[in-house]
Design a binder for these strands. Structure first.
Length: 362
DNA sequence: TCGATTTGACCTCT
DNA sequence: AGAGGTCAAATCGA
């Protein structure tokens, strides 16, 4: 899953454009639809389809390339620990992830961290391999490790290493850490290019003989030297907060859901996976009803701000989406979080407020 | 001899 | 029944 800054910016532009198209389409559908309007709506619809295609295309190759410098997260709450992505972080997902994860063997364990890394052994702990398994639809075996001190110190820490498919030229590995170390050993500060020794400092135990299993080849970072070139580990923030992940299908469903919510204008915001982390606090500045100059409406602002703060859902804000929201008879809440402007679109429905956040993380 | 890895069998869940 | 995770005897190398 490779998302360079350029890719994210391009993706953002696509989605922002799609959001604008959605508003345009909605406006067309709300008015009388003559033949010319139908034609225009069809054009907009086709363009929307293109936005989906481009966005999905931009996301798709990332799931298999395994090289990224960007923070990613999974969105599906299921417990599989395969690689899967969504662009942004969900507080809700994080909460789910931080709970105990029931594994297939009936036990419950805590996923404490997930990494995509070219050097899965450079984590500063000593591990003992206790098994490997062929996983369905995977080209490489999944390797299972326990903390070397699992017996003598009853350390429950485990990790799973899964080489990612299509990791050419540099193989990438999804490393899932289960349970915290209770062996009281501090992880070694990995020094790029410096092979760690088990005697002097805790690190992953390396095989002393040639392995017969394919995934072991090149896995040892002290052998392939990957640590020096690729010492940067890629954290999946959902998992930093704890949690497992979803499969590729779930991932794609989540991505489509994200995109669909953007395009649709977000009536189902509360049910959709949130892309970006929401600011720690929202200070409402004013509420502007569409078509009117900003007016003080503190009760609405307070209510909306409270709702926003309780939600995980936000998108990056840009003027076009803001205008699109305003154009469609929604109130717009503008707040700020320190020096970062926050914008939300508020839909006043019969029995509740729907607040769709459009925020800036610039 | 000791400790780590390998690998087939077993267990549990879906 | 199949899949994922774990166990433990066999194996290997220092």
């Amino acid at each position: 899953m490779a998302f360079g800054q350029d890719t994210i910016e391009q993706l953002y532009r696509e989605l922002a454009g799609g959001r604008h198209l959605s508003a345009k389409l909605q406006a067309l559908l709300e008015g009388p639809l003559d033949s010319r309007g139908q034609e225009e709506a069809a054009d907009v619809s086709r363009e929307l389809g293109r936005v989906f295609m481009v966005s999905l295309y931009m996301l798709k190759p990332c799931s298999s390339s395994g090289r990224t410098e960007e923070v990613m997260t999974r969105t599906a709450p299921e417990t599989r620990t395969d690689d899967s992505i969504c662009l942004h972080t969900s507080k809700k997902v994080k909460r789910i992830r931080s709970e105990l994860v029931p594994l297939r063997n009936g036990r419950e364990e805590m996923v404490t961290r997930t990494e995509i890394t070219p050097s899965p052994y450079k984590d500063g702990y000593q591990w003992r391999k206790y098994g490997q398994k062929n996983i369905q639809d995977r080209n490489y075996l999944r390797l299972y490790y326990k903390c070397t001190f699992s017996r003598e110190r009853r350390c429950a820490a485990k990790k799973q290493v899964q080489q990612q498919d299509g990791g050419e030229p540099v193989p990438m590995y999804l490393v899932t850490y289960l349970n915290e170390h209770t062996c009281q050993l501090q992880p070694q500060q990995a020094v790029p290019g410096t092979p760690a020794t088990a005697a002097s400092s805790p690190t992953t135990t390396t095989s002393r003989r040639q392995s017969s299993s394919p995934p072991a080849e090149g896995l040892d970072s002290t052998r392939n030297g990957a640590g020096g070139l690729f010492g940067r580990h890629l954290l999946l923030p959902h998992a930093v907060g704890g949690g497992g992940g979803g499969g590729i299908d779930e991932e794609e469903a989540a991505i489509v859901m994200c995109l669909a919510t953007v395009i649709s204008g977000g009536g189902a915001a509360a049910a959709a996976p949130p892309p970006l982390s929401w600011p720690s606090r929202v200070v409402p500045a004013f509420v502007a009803s569409a078509g009117h100059s900003p007016s003080a409406d503190e009760s609405v602002a307070d209510e909306a701000a409270a709702k926003m703060a309780d939600m995980d859902y936000c998108f990056q804000y840009d003027p076009s989406t803001f205008e699109a929201a305003a154009d469609h008879h929604h109130r717009v809440l503008i707040g700020d979080d320190g020096d970062v402007p926050r914008v939300a679109r508020i839909t006043d429905t019969a029995d509740r407020w729907d607040v769709n956040q459009l925020c800036s993380n610039h």
